[in-house]
Simulated scan of single mutants.
Amino acid sequence: MLNQAIQQFKLNVLSIHEVEDSHSSTVYKCNLLNGENIFLKIPYTKLKCQRELEAYEILKDRVSIPCMLDYWSGDEECPGAFLLSELKGQPLTNKNLPAVAFQIGVLHASMHQIQPPTTIRLTGIQNEFQDWSNFVERQFYSFAEDVKEVLDESLYRQSIEKFENMKMHLPPSDGPSFVHMDFRPANIIVDEDKVSGVIDFESVRFGSTEIDFTKLYRDYLSFDFSLYESYQEGYNTIRPLIDLEVVLPFYQFTDAFNSIGWCKRRGIEKNASFLMENLSILKKVLR
């Protein structure tokens, strides 16, 4: 598929390196003979490809994202491919300053400010907001089939009971908003003290913002309260932030549970460290 895409885009490639921290697509950083760096992205499925394509149309000129240089709709073997410009910088780390967290808050809120378009017919990005509770439940019980094969019976039963109990105490949904669904440091590019933008849109939905804070908190905001404060300040300059203390415990729990199911689907041995990390979060919540 890589060779097919290179031929389709007529690229003169000097070197190619696969990007490691990409879970829903295969991404290559290509150094071209003219010295330019571009990214070639091949989503795993046609649906993910269509979501990404629609996201670029929706977000263009509204949120800082890479430029889509070219697109190939694929064939029977390849679901499709994107040619993307390079955002200057590196993925976010928890060593970045509170000023960066403020900008991330602004960026995140700017995405959440976007509502379902009335002028574009969407076939990839679903609007799940009106049936949000059922959407969250469908996701949870879909992964439960895989989780059941990993957890012991007692822990699995506790998890199901915990989900049903916590779900009843959620506040009204906040939206409908454009939610990234994978808003984590690896998908946020920072150039020194400036946020360059956000990448990877194969999982996006229109739904409730409450689901979209979990991974950022887990992998970045929880390490330093000053980062958490600055992020909230930035977010509130665009739109009011919901009470995260109310919704985070539920989504931290469901994210850990669903991630265990994801590891089972993608291979336990290959994802052993991620599996152990989420087992630890799950057990902590259940205690």
Score class of each variant (00 low, 15 high):
L2H: 05
N3V: 02
N3W: 10
Q4R: 12
Q4H: 09
L11H: 11
L11R: 07
L11M: 08
L11A: 08
V13G: 06
V13A: 10
E20M: 10
E20A: 15
S22R: 15
S22M: 15
S24W: 09
S25P: 13
Y28C: 01
C30R: 12
L32S: 09
L33M: 14
L33H: 10
N37Y: 07
I38G: 03
F39C: 10
K41I: 00
T45W: 01
Q50M: 14
R51M: 12
E52W: 02
Y56E: 04
I58V: 09
I58N: 03
L59H: 05
K60V: 06
R62G: 06
S64Q: 14
S64K: 13
C67P: 00
C67W: 08
L69R: 11
D70E: 14
S73E: 14
D75T: 11
C78Y: 01
S85F: 06
K88N: 09
P91S: 14
A99C: 08
G105V: 13
V106D: 12
H108M: 14
H108F: 06
S110C: 06
S110E: 13
P116G: 08
P116F: 08
P117Y: 01
L122M: 03
G124V: 04
G124H: 01
G124E: 02
I125Q: 04
W132G: 10
N134V: 04
N134C: 07
V136D: 10
V136M: 10
F140K: 05
A144Q: 07
A144G: 04
D146V: 04
D146L: 13
V147Y: 00
E149T: 14
D152A: 00
S154N: 12
Y156G: 09
Q158Y: 01
S159M: 05
E164F: 00
E164I: 01
N165G: 02
M168V: 10
G175L: 06
S177L: 01
F178R: 02
V179W: 01
H180V: 01
H180T: 00
F183T: 07
A186E: 15
I188T: 07
I188P: 11
I188Y: 05
I189K: 10
I189F: 06
I189R: 09
V190T: 10
D191W: 03
E192C: 04
K194W: 07
K194T: 13
K194L: 12
S196C: 11
G197P: 15
G197T: 15
F201R: 07
S203T: 08
V204G: 00
V204A: 02
R205A: 01
F206P: 11
F206W: 12
G207V: 03
G207I: 02
S208R: 11
T209A: 13
K215H: 00
R218I: 09
S226C: 09
L227Q: 06
Y228A: 01
Y228D: 13
E233W: 00
E233G: 00
G234E: 04
G234Y: 05
T237W: 12
L241P: 04
D243P: 11
V247N: 11
L248P: 12
P249A: 15
P249K: 15
Q252E: 13
Q252C: 05
Q252T: 06
T254W: 03
D255Q: 14
D255T: 15
D255P: 10
A256M: 01
F257G: 00
G261Q: 07
G261K: 06
W262T: 04
W262E: 02
C263A: 15
K264M: 03
G267S: 05
E269T: 02
F274S: 03
L275W: 05
L275C: 08
S280R: 15
S280N: 13
L282E: 07
K283W: 05
K284P: 00
